[in-house]
Design a binder for these strands. Structure first.
Lengths: 238, 238
DNA sequence: CGTAACATTGAGGTCGGTCAACCCGCGTGG
DNA sequence: CCACGCGGGTTGACCGACCTCAATGTTACG
């Protein structure tokens, strides 16, 4: 028997750390746009690949690196003292994470799927940013947007029912993932969703079922959801 | 009879907007430190005074202003469609708010006590920041710190019991307010605390009573709390 | 002193957590 | 081919923490 039985059922199960490769960044050529933040990131960053369910950043790492998701999905999380896992945020392709990492206490970061990220030292980026005020302002904008998202998250979490949270989550994901109409492909498991919303896996499951039963959504497969009745969903979201 | 009875008891009661004054900033003299962010803020900002319970920023304002609290306490909030009020954050002297405001949809900001704030246009600040990379990096640090706080807030809110939330709140306030040992002066009402933690006022009240009864804290007066048993409190917080 | 806003206390209902069983798809191996 | 285990997901029964509604206490301030 494993730790499995000694923890609450929804506790995070650590996954074996697998090997990963950092390959020289193929896009670091002479023709990068050094006046855009993205260009700078490609200039000073290296691409790293991680398989699914691998830890990218450890909880007490220095926090001096910045990451840009190239492909796949990443989440940041923290393990609470009682074994529960709280997910800080999900990061989809194009998103940057690591901005909120300070020295000392951190969130950890883990891959949800196979992932390619662009890694760079904050100091290296900072040095370059100093020379380009356009890039500096872009970096600031990026952080401000991340802050807005965190604030919205706070609003979503506090004082919302399970249904409101789940619907809010669906909308957030729909908005963020390269929105192809009203079909939504979720990269994360029910457990991930639960840990993100501060609910249990059972409640997420029941809530989704209720939404489907009411005709608001259709659960085509476990990871695929179609919006059926937008206005009803809007109403449920507050 | 007022709207009072038609709303949930914990709903936000709008307060009459009172007059306020923007006075020329007395500190805008020749000797400001233009290479520090704070110096720049004083350079381009004006001091405004607001009485208690006044709206500073309306929910659908442009969001092009930045505010630094000089004295008093401010909160940002949102009124949900069912009348509940959700507080985004509290801001104490020295704190800066408005960073997360984007055009379009915003949080509103309201004073909790009498307040003096330093107001400035983001654009004006941005122009000055361009010339001082030290100030630019300070501004970035400031935003990053705010982001970290929002993330911690997310952790506090999701999947925590009422007791954990209240204790976490007490610790947060204790850390942030010019910490004089283990005595804590709360500027906000129970209702504000409840709206911040996503609880009801009754639950906050009962939880505080339970904490006092267990000997962890002492409620000297409504707004004054003394920590009696730090280690017990730490244990309750997760 | 009187009033209104704020806060506490009590009784009862409800939503979501807990625990447990079950389902389903998938890979493995006999 | 089926048996089996395994992980993720769903479903059901029960229970407790927190919300709701209502009454009562207390503080602040004219």
């Amino acid at each position: 028997m494993l730790i499995h039985s000694t923890r609450p059922k929804h506790a995070f199960q650590p996954t074996a750390l697998r090997k990963f490769s950092i390959v020289p960044n193929e896009t670091t050529d002479a023709d990068v746009e050094i006046d855009s933040l993205d260009g700078l990131m490609h200039l000073v960053g290296a691409v790293a690949s991680y398989p699914s369910r691998t830890e990218i950043v450890h909880e007490d790492e220095a926090g001096d690196r910045l990451y840009k998701v190239v492909s796949g999905t990443v989440c940041t999380y923290k393990i609470l003292s009682d074994g529960r896992r709280q997910i800080g945020s999900f990061y989809l392709p194009g998103d940057v994470f690591g901005l909120e990492f300070l020295e000392g206490h951190n969130l950890a970061a883990e891959t949800i799927t196979n992932v390619k990220v662009l890694v760079m030292k904050k100091s290296a980026l900072a040095a370059l940013v100093k020379k380009s005020s356009a890039a500096a302002s872009e970096l600031f904008q990026l952080t401000a947007r991340e802050l807005t998202r965190a604030q919205n998250r706070v609003l979503l979490l506090s004082s919302k029912s399970a249904q409101e949270r789940v619907v809010g989550f669906l909308f957030e994901m729909s908005k963020r993932s390269s929105g192809t109409g009203n079909r939504l492909e979720l990269p994360m498991s029910r457990q991930d969703i639960a840990d993100y919303l501060g609910l249990t896996i059972e409640t997420v499951s029941r809530t989704l079922w209720a939404l489907e039963h009411s005709g608001a959504i259709e659960i085509s497969s476990r990871r695929r959801i179609t919006f059926r009745d937008l206005s009803r969903l809007m109403r449920l979201q507050q």
